[in-house]
Design a protein around this nucleic acid. Sequence first.
DNA 1: CAACTGTGCTATTACAATTAGCACAGTTAT
DNA 2: ATAACTGTGCTAATTGTAATAGCACAGTTG
Lengths: 124, 124
Amino acid sequence: MNFFLDFHSRTPIYEQIKEQITSLIGQGVIKADDQLPSLRQLSSELSVNINTIKRAFSDLESQGIIYSVAGKGSFISGNAHRGVIVDDALEEAKSAISKAKSMGAEKSEIIIMVNSIYEGDENT
Amino acid sequence: MNFFLDFHSRTPIYEQIKEQITSLIGQGVIKADDQLPSLRQLSSELSVNINTIKRAFSDLESQGIIYSVAGKGSFISGNAHRGVIVDDALEEAKSAISKAKSMGAEKSEIIIMVNSIYEGDENT
DNA sequence: CAACTGTGCTATTACAATTAGCACAGTTAT
DNA sequence: ATAACTGTGCTAATTGTAATAGCACAGTTG
């Protein structure tokens, strides 16, 4: 379970942790009921305060993406599969694209960009 | 020059003002060398402190989108046309889409979303 | 009981966003 | 020159968020 944190980024550390966990789920690397590293383990591995890890986990639990059990650990939620995570990410992308449109971006420009991002994939 | 501010949004007021000005430029509503409302005028119109307006204008000036002259006012920059603004917005959309991809979003899902956003346009 | 797990506080530090007020400087017209 | 505009540049106070720190409590497992 490798995490890469940028301590100089403006995006909060707990958000970076949330992103990386959801990304691992979205990509199918970790599945429902898989156990996450413990708060204290992640805390020392990443040299981040346990409360910051806790904040990330609590957020994810609120979103129904993970569930935590005192004494046992934190696990990937069953109902949080790909769907929830991708939908959330798509929502963010949607607002960014809508904003670009309002700034005058053409549809064709967006499409070209999407193609370049997915370049080399076996998708339609 | 109508601005709509959401004072309860988490996005800073000065960011909202920047967005709306760049949007007007991106859509071609205001062009190079057009004069913007004065700091004090916008301040009273929007019921926002002059320093907040100033912050937005200073940011836009740093980005080369507008230029200000003491005693005269603030104006749309000549080299800041559509290009700069749209490119910035596309950059943001790109990172959001890349993130969605890393979360497991399929290219087809993105395309469908783009289509829905641009629904009803006379574009290709 | 020991050694793990997560939970829930409170306090502190640092920084960002916003408002407020004031003084200063350039421009324009009367 | 003066009035009435324009932008500029500060400093201060307030509020909220991010992050760290420390501590106590509670559940689980061997």
